[in-house]
């Protein structure tokens, strides 16, 4: 039985402010997209979206700042620590399921939908719509090539993607080295390995951006290039966003290390970000295999 009582925070302004910010983000994004699709200027939507984003950024700083302050004030018990651990684990599980939806879409399209369009199986009746369509993967020629002009070529897995795989896998190792160093209270080494991890993350994002530019400008591999482009960009795009977020979080952790936060016993903030980074790494392995190689 834990004798110290569980910390229940006093009233807080952050949740209601964050709800307003989320509303601005969502409403702004909706207004902006609708205006763009109707080919009107996106003035109001863009303003709301940016206001929401700015507000959310400030709130996150304030809210996490609050939590850090309480944590360093010694208000958190071991039980509280377990609540955070459960919270982060289940959050990562929800992220896994988010990616699962897109992987599921990819498998369904590759294994069932495209072959059926090509006339295979019981559902070969779809052949009546586009009799000349031949099923293939990567889908270079779509059934309706006027609306969805297929790509001229797709990204080769053995250049940038392979390099990126090495970068991310290495970054998981360097992050673990940082963690081991933190457990020994070797703070200079923590800084060094964290820094290396961040650099690897940034280089990864840079390569991804370069690859996207190449896809768009040289290969004709775009969002509009049929379902290969759609699955390619949604999977790699959301992964890229997660790497970006993870890198930002690593930078914040490095900053906190520099100002003297965390010690060998208490460093859940560090661990949470490390879990997140490893998760992003594992998703990449799945992407490399199923989007690029196979």
């Amino acid at each position: 039985m834990s004798s110290s009582s569980y910390y229940v925070p006093e009233q807080s302004r952050w949740p209601i402010l964050a709800s307003v910010a989320l509303f601005l983000l969502a409403y702004g994004a909706g207004t902006l997209l609708n205006a763009l699709s109707a080919e009107q200027g996106g003035g109001l939507g863009l303003v709301l979206l940016l206001a929401g984003a700015l507000m959310m950024g400030l709130i996150l700083v304030g809210w996490f700042g609050n939590v850090i302050h309480e944590s360093r004030g010694g208000l958190y018990s071991a039980q509280m620590d377990r609540s955070f651990r459960w919270g982060m684990s289940w959050f990562i599980f929800s992220e896994v399921m988010f990616f699962a939806a897109f992987f599921g879409a990819l498998f369904y399209v590759r294994v069932l939908a495209v072959p059926w369009l090509g006339g295979e199986g019981d559902k070969g009746v779809s052949q009546m719509l586009w009799p000349d369509f031949v099923a293939q993967w990567p889908l270079m020629i779509t059934p309706d090539a006027e609306r969805f002009p297929g790509p001229a070529a797709v990204i080769s897995p053995w250049h940038i993607p392979l390099l990126n795989t090495c970068l991310l896998v290495t970054s998981s190792f360097t992050l673990t080295l940082a963690h081991k160093a933190l457990l020994r209270d070797a703070r200079m080494q923590v800084r060094r390995w964290l820094f290396v991890t961040i650099v690897l993350g940034v280089v990864f994002i840079g390569f991804q951006a370069y690859e996207y530019a190449e896809a768009y400008h040289e290969l004709g591999l775009t969002l509009q290039a049929g379902v290969y482009g759609a699955t390619f960009f949604i999977l790699t795009g959301f992964h890229g966003l997660h790497v970006t977020l993870g890198t930002l979080m690593l930078m914040i952790i490095l900053g906190r290390i520099v100002v003297g936060h965390f010690d060998s016993r208490q460093h859940f903030g560090f661990e949470a970000v490390a879990w997140y980074w490893h998760f992003v790494d594992v998703v990449w392995i799945g992407l490399f295999l199923f989007v690029y190689v196979l």
Binding site: V109, A113, W116, L117, T142, L223, Q224, A225, A230
Partner: peptide
Amino acid sequence: GTSFFDAGGGGD
């Protein structure tokens, strides 16, 4: 302009 749910682009 993606075609997840549009058979014209290979979706379904």
